[in-house]
């Protein structure tokens, strides 16, 4: 789980990009963020890398699960 809460965009999406590169395209990845703009940015990046994304929201925090 990548915890990118408290980071302002575009740092969270860059953290996810680093994790994808380091993990050599892992089949599953989870990330926690606290701003909608980060959800959108990560979703765009994930889609460009062939991941499907599901998002769960609770108390203004979002957990994104990337799968392929």
């Amino acid at each position: 789980m990548i915890d990118a809460r408290g980071q302002s965009c575009p740092i969270p999406v860059v953290m996810v990009q680093d994790a994808v590169k380091k993990g050599n395209n892992p089949s599953e990845l989870q990330v926690k963020v606290d701003a909608m703009v980060c959800v959108e940015n990560i979703s765009r990046y994930a889609a460009s890398q062939g991941y499907t994304v599901s998002t769960e929201e609770s108390d203004g925090e979002y957990t994104l699960t990337l799968k392929k």
């Binding site: 965009c9 575009p10 999406v13 860059v14 990009q17 701003a35 909608m36 703009v37 959108e40 940015n41 990560i42 979703s43 765009r44 990046y45 994930a46 460009s48």
Partner: peptide, 12 residues
Amino acid sequence: FAKMGILPEGMY
């Protein structure tokens, strides 16, 4: 950058 999700909040 847009393809990589590097986008400003103002865009949204």
